[in-house]
């Protein structure tokens, strides 16, 4: 009798813990899946009702860029990657890369329920009302309220290789970009390692990966942002396989932090 009781209790607790864990793990998996889906569907722009067309009261990309900081902005765009979703006392928070045909947007801590976050897929159209902000050079929309709309558009990666190190690169901030024919350089002077956990190697598995690549004699540092692509993602694993001297093609999003800080989502041998 006692054994049966114990078994029933253990079974109940196990089932509950499994279901709770499975529920809590979803957002991370969803984020990784979204990025991988973006990689898989990086086909030419899908046609939908003219991605640059805006509803009434919505800013064009040009108007958005011209808007002053800390003013309310209303935009329409299409999800290109979902970075993270989490929640604290202040409510749910989602971070999203988005684009229309004219340019890119970065939504930081958008107010999106977990249910809506799961509905957002690569290509999903939405309207966002938030505040234009700048954090360490990154132009973004904060505290945006999002409404999902009908329509789909997946951007092609813009080849920004030739713009690396130039003042023109910033015009593509937050865009889906590619860098081609990049040579992997040592992650630190005098080291054979091709990547570091965290910027100085002080991190561990699961933390951001930092690696150096060069083109035309100049070296650039790229990042695998662990919230955008966690350690289970293909790109995280691919970067850990890199060897100094490898020549690779990269794709990612042109995040900005005191300068270009591309968040890489795909690494492949150069074609």
């Amino acid at each position: 009798m006692k054994k049966k009781l114990a078994i029933a209790l253990v079974f109940a607790c196990t089932m509950m813990s499994v279901s709770v864990y499975a529920e809590s793990a979803q957002p991370v998996e969803a984020a990784a899946e979204a990025v991988e889906a973006a990689e898989d569907t990086a086909a030419p722009a899908e046609e939908a009702a003219a991605p640059a067309a805006k509803s009434e009261g919505v800013m064009t990309y040009e108007e958005y860029m011209a808007a002053e900081m800390d003013t309310e902005v209303v935009i329409e765009a299409y999800v290109q990657a979902k970075q993270s979703w989490w929640e604290d006392e202040q409510g749910p928070k989602a971070t999203i890369y988005a684009q229309d045909e004219d340019g890119a947007y970065f939504l930081y801590n958008a107010v999106v329920t977990q249910e809506d976050y799961e509905k957002l897929e690569v290509g999903t159209k939405f309207k966002a009302t938030g505040y234009k902000s700048e954090w360490s050079g990154e132009i973004e929309i904060t505290e945006a309220v999002i409404e999902i709309e009908e329509g789909s558009f997946t951007a092609e990666a813009f080849d920004a290789t030739a713009l690396l190190g130039t003042d023109d690169l910033i015009a593509h901030q937050n865009e889906k970009v590619s860098f081609k024919g990049m040579t992997v350089e040592p992650a630190q002077e005098g080291s054979d390692a091709a990547y570091l956990y965290s910027y100085d190697g002080s991190g561990s598995e699961g933390d951001d990966l930092y690696f150096n690549v060069s083109v035309n004699g100049a070296v650039y540092t790229f990042t695998v942002e662990s919230y955008l692509c966690d350690s289970s993602s293909d790109v995280y694993k691919a970067v850990k396989e890199l060897k100094v001297g490898d020549v690779i093609d990269l794709e990612g999003f042109l995040y900005w932090y005191e300068g270009a800080n591309p968040h890489i989502t795909s690494v492949k041998a150069a074609q």
Binding site: V20, V28, W86, D88, T95, Q114, Y227
Partner: peptide, 14 residues
């Protein structure tokens, strides 16, 4: 608990 909180993303749900 500033903008770095994404590390706390390990989600209040869990």
């Amino acid at each position: 608990n500033r903008r770095a909180e994404v590390p706390e993303k390990p989600r209040r749900a869990s």
